[in-house]
């Protein structure tokens, strides 16, 4: 009994995975601040926060899909499509701000519906289905713009990506709203709890009255929607839209979830971890620029961090299981005695 407790002291600390990675993020910021004072510059911090915000919004949608043991590779291309749609409505058709954004979001929803239909109705593996839609959506976005950037979006629109309210970038406020809604949804609503059940075991969920197909479908639609949000913010930040906006962002989204403690096997992961995961990615990118590390090194370092994060998580999971088993064995022995 003594041994079990001694063992668990450090490990119990590690067990709270969100705390761990939060400490990692804080540590990184601290080291970086010491290495280069201008990191703590207000403008720099705001820019890191802004990047974190749109990456995190994208990742939260991806998180839902990963929770149900799926994957959505199309989120990057949805960013591009929504950016292009919104920008074209604003610049070329002279639409007002609100309807233009709405149409951009609807574009994301539509792709989500297509993904959901392919995966749930046609029973395609999610990896393949969303890889296919990625290619198609990419093409659509490029065709729409003829490969040229769309400019002249108007200051009101740019405010979403560049402006600040109460010292915080607008994007951060949007993230806060999305994060609060998403974590209430996942932790507190019936549907959210069922999502975790579905990810932990599809058969068992189905046998417990969970409408698994409907739930899967909805998840892909939500992922399409958050991707569209990310795309629109990104577009407003850059002041232009291109077919290639957001290309490759799906990898950042998946990495944020995984660094944040989500399991690709489904059923594990949370919103706060994912946001911190996105934060870690963006701080590293910022750090590499500030410390003027070669851009060629950037992806290597990010690659190492993803692998290390997952390795630590595996270790944490294994030791948590060991401890739980030992505790149960003890309870059983006590009862038998």
């Amino acid at each position: 009994m003594q041994r079990v407790q001694k063992d668990s002291f450090i490990r119990r600390f590690l067990k709270k995975k969100t705390t761990t990675i939060f400490l990692v993020l804080a540590g990184m910021c601290l080291v970086l601040g010491i290495a280069n004072k201008s990191f703590f510059n207000y403008e720099n911090l705001a820019s890191v926060a802004r990047a974190t915000a749109y990456t995190a919004i994208l990742s939260i949608g991806e998180l839902l899909v990963i929770l149900i043991c799926g994957i959505d590779l199309s989120v990057g291309s949805i960013c591009g499509l929504s950016a292009v749609v919104t920008a074209m409505m604003l610049a070329q058709f002279g639409w007002a701000l609100f309807p233009a954004i709405l149409l951009g979001l609807i574009a994301g929803l539509v792709v989500g519906v297509i993904n959901g239909a392919l995966i749930v109705t046609m029973k395609l593996p999610p990896f393949i289905a969303t890889m296919g839609t990625t290619q198609i959506i990419n093409s659509v976005a490029l065709l729409l713009t003829n490969g040229k950037p769309v400019l002249g979006l108007g200051d009101k629109f740019l405010f979403i990506g560049q402006g600040k309210v109460l010292y915080l970038p607008v994007a951060v406020w949007i993230l806060i709203a999305v994060a609060v809604i998403a974590s209430l949804f996942l932790n507190k609503t019936v549907t959210g709890r069922k999502l975790y059940a579905l990810g932990g075991g599809e058969e068992a969920a189905r046998f417990s009255g969970v409408r698994t197909n409907l739930l899967k479908f909805v998840t892909y639609v939500i992922s399409g929607f958050t991707a569209a949000m990310c795309g629109i913010i990104l577009c407003a930040r850059m002041g232009s839209a291109q077919g290639s906006t957001g290309a490759g962002y799906q990898m950042d989204a998946i990495a944020s979830c995984v660094i944040g403690g989500a399991s690709m096997a489904g059923g594990e992961g949370n919103v706060s971890g994912t946001i911190i995961g996105a934060g870690i990615m963006c701080v590293i990118r910022n750090a590499l620029v500030m410390l003027s590390v070669s851009t060629y090194l950037q992806s290597m370092i990010i690659g190492f961090i993803i692998i290390a994060a997952v390795m630590i998580d595996q270790f944490r999971r294994a030791s948590a299981n060991r401890i739980q088993k030992a505790v149960i064995a003890e309870a059983t022995a006590e009862r038998n005695a």
């Binding site: 019936v190 709890r193 975790y196 059940a197 932990g200 075991g201 058969e203 068992a204």
Partner: peptide, 23 residues
Amino acid sequence: DRKEQALILGLDIKENISLAILR
């Protein structure tokens, strides 16, 4: 099949017991 059809193994006892009547 207890492990496949009945239980969500990665969730705790509380979640499993309440799953069918969450509403």
